[in-house]
């Protein structure tokens, strides 16, 4: 994100305020009187939080691992993509700096020793948990979308639409047909006028 070095996506710009990342944005809209999880009871809300943590701890870390720690993906896709806005030699400096940062984070959370297969296994487990929770419902909690739906959609949609060196990651998601339908439904309901997107 070019807006500020500490600032991360997603962000919203309201008046003269910039709020970045999902958590603060949820807090911000809640403070303004809008919340998607108001209809939930305490147990459901706790459950929602747990699943969101699962997303952040497992899926997000796995995505980072595959992008930056798998050398083939990093060299062919991630580094060129990350460095595309910058001129030589800054592009190389910034890309390697970012890679080093991510790898340091991986060793901090104990993922540095994992192999790619183990990471794919973690993704599969995560998807299975989500798939079981979703079942045949429209959204994770009955008929109303919540913050969890937004987060899951964001991650799965990105995984499904991003071309990597191998399709293994998106194939893991595609094995769960109810998750696929879920992503399609949200895309059609909320983003269909945007064009492009997921082609089955």
């Amino acid at each position: 994100c070019s807006l500020q070095s500490e600032c991360k996506v997603p962000f919203i710009h309201v008046g003269n305020q910039v709020v970045s990342e999902l958590g603060p944005i949820i807090q911000f809209t809640k403070a303004k009187g809008h919340s998607l999880s108001d209809v939930l009871d305490d147990v459901q809300r706790a459950e929602m939080k747990a699943y969101m943590e699962l997303m952040n701890n497992m899926l997000l870390t796995a995505e980072l691992y595959i992008q930056w720690c798998d050398e083939t993906t990093a060299a062919e896709i991630t580094r060129p993509r990350y460095s595309s806005p910058y001129p030589w030699p800054l592009k190389h400096i910034l890309a390697y700096q970012k890679q080093w940062e991510v790898r340091r984070k991986m060793s901090a959370v104990g993922w540095a020793e994992k192999t790619l297969e183990q990471v794919y296994e973690d993704v599969a487990q995560c998807c299975q948990a989500l798939s079981q929770r979703l079942g045949t419902q429209m959204y994770f909690f009955n008929r109303q979308p919540t913050e969890l739906d937004a987060l899951v959609f964001g991650h799965l949609f990105t995984i499904l639409t991003t071309q990597l060196t191998s399709n293994e990651l998106s194939d893991k998601v595609k094995t769960y047909s109810n998750l696929l339908t879920f992503v399609h439904r949200i895309e059609q309901t909320y983003f269909e006028d945007q064009g492009g997107g997921l082609s089955s």
Partner: peptide
């Protein structure tokens, strides 16, 4: 970069490398 979170959007837009 910005010095504070209250920095105006015009300055934020200039942030980066």
């Amino acid at each position: 970069g910005c010095l504070a979170r209250t920095a105006s959007f015009a300055v934020r837009e200039e942030s980066g490398h």
